[in-house]
Write a protein that binds this DNA or RNA. Structure first.
Lengths: 235, 235
DNA sequence: TTCATTCCTTGATCTAAATCAGGATTTTCG
DNA sequence: CGAAAATCCTGATTTAGATCAAGGAATGAA
């Protein structure tokens, strides 16, 4: 069996501003923001970016790799609340009373951060940045809520189809291919996130492959028939 | 059968500041905020506070009654994403590209609002208000995410127990009884929210009543054994 | 009050997906 | 590289909860 092409996505020389706040700021404001952005050491697979209950330190932008956010329950169980791909911001959960989940790298991942103090100052000084942060947080709320729609009373196939279409759309928005992208997370993690057993994830992916809607080679997913796949979402 | 006592919860003469931003603002700032808060006509049962896709107009605080937020899918199906009780803020979903859900009164409800322009000005002028809004939005993100935990791989009893404990805690925080409170929403709505059939909601409530953990009379729910009920959550 | 509507409960049946089990494949790392 | 570990796939069985069905309370309007 041929070795599947390994590929990874990254935003080289990224900055928080470039990646996440397109057109919201003018050049001077961008520079102000840039100057406050801190680089962060590379995260190995399994490394923590921040931990549950830790006080808020920074907002982070993923430059390359993938993070998952996890709620750890008392009994050691874990529930994944989100995956974060290059260009996406993670950390909004921590602004109230510290982080309510942990952020873990599921592969080698690089990020940069905007520290709290800088965020506090800049959002006061730059109205358009303030509005942009409000917008981004609002979008996170919307995203989480649409996830409720994905979980409640949906079949396993509908959940997987929704998940794949969602990934595709997010990669497209960030300038990557919407048709072929890495599926960095394990079946176990997908199942955990979507509220189903890993075995079921596997079965559904097999079914979708057999129906020629997708193909999966190693970590690389290809959408063969986006239209038909969208139908399986079945709103 | 005796008629159950009807009771409703309300925050009389409430203001956004008093209800939601305790201790964050000084007297002068409070007055600034107060002066911008707009009263809103009473909402009858079933009335819309705002509609899906409507541009953002205000943040609203519930003074009395209950609202639900609903995503309407193309096929006419609806998914409830949240319930909002007296003292809680609704509308954060609209700050990005307009409202992504509708807010509907499930009983006679009164609210007051903070218009966008006022929010924009005041969050610029008052750093502590800005931080408070960030905190409130962060909390909404956290709430939605913990809902994912409630929905994913939980039994129907665990979901209902979680839902009831959550309501109890929210009423307690707002100064109402944590032990006896109104269950304003229909079984159908609870089921929709928790991703289960209305019949199952009914069965689980019956089981919990039979086990003497709760009692339900009309719209009034009483928690008879909070400790045992908490165990049914099964983290 | 009475009637109509909506809401709630309970029972019987059916099904999607969990669980259990085993083997195959891929990845990791010394 | 090669062995160990992790991950993935597929089949058989079981079960929680959906669905179908019907009668009973509560609510609201006339």
């Amino acid at each position: 069996m041929r070795t599947p092409p390994k590929f990874s996505l990254s935003c080289r020389d990224c900055s928080l501003a470039e990646l996440c706040l397109p057109r919201a700021l003018d050049t001077e404001e961008l520079e102000q923001l840039e100057s406050k952005v801190k680089q962060h050491p590379v995260l190995a697979r399994g490394a923590l970016l921040y931990n549950l209950r830790e006080p808020f330190h920074s907002l982070y932008v993923v430059k390359s790799g993938t993070l998952k956010t996890v709620i750890n329950t008392a009994s050691g169980e874990e529930q994944i609340t989100g995956f974060f791909m290059p260009g996406e911001i993670v950390g909004f959960d921590g602004l109230d009373t510290g982080h309510t989940c942990s952020a873990v790298a599921i592969e080698r991942t690089t990020v940069c951060g905007l520290p709290l103090a800088a965020m506090d100052d800049l959002t006061g000084a730059i109205p358009s940045l303030r509005r942009e942060i409000f917008r981004l947080m609002s979008r996170e709320i919307t995203t989480d809520q649409s996830m409720l729609l994905t979980l409640a009373r949906r079949t396993s196939e509908e959940r997987i189809a929704t998940f794949l279409m969602n990934l595709s759309e997010r990669f497209r928005k960030r300038g990557f291919s919407a048709v072929q992208f890495p599926l960095a997370m394990a079946r176990q993690d997908i199942g955990n996130y979507l509220g189903m057993a890993a075995e079921t994830v596997s079965r559904v992916l097999t079914n979708l492959s057999d129906a020629n809607l997708i193909s999966v080679h190693g970590r690389v997913l290809t959408v063969l028939n986006p239209t038909s796949l969208a139908l399986r979402v079945g709103q």
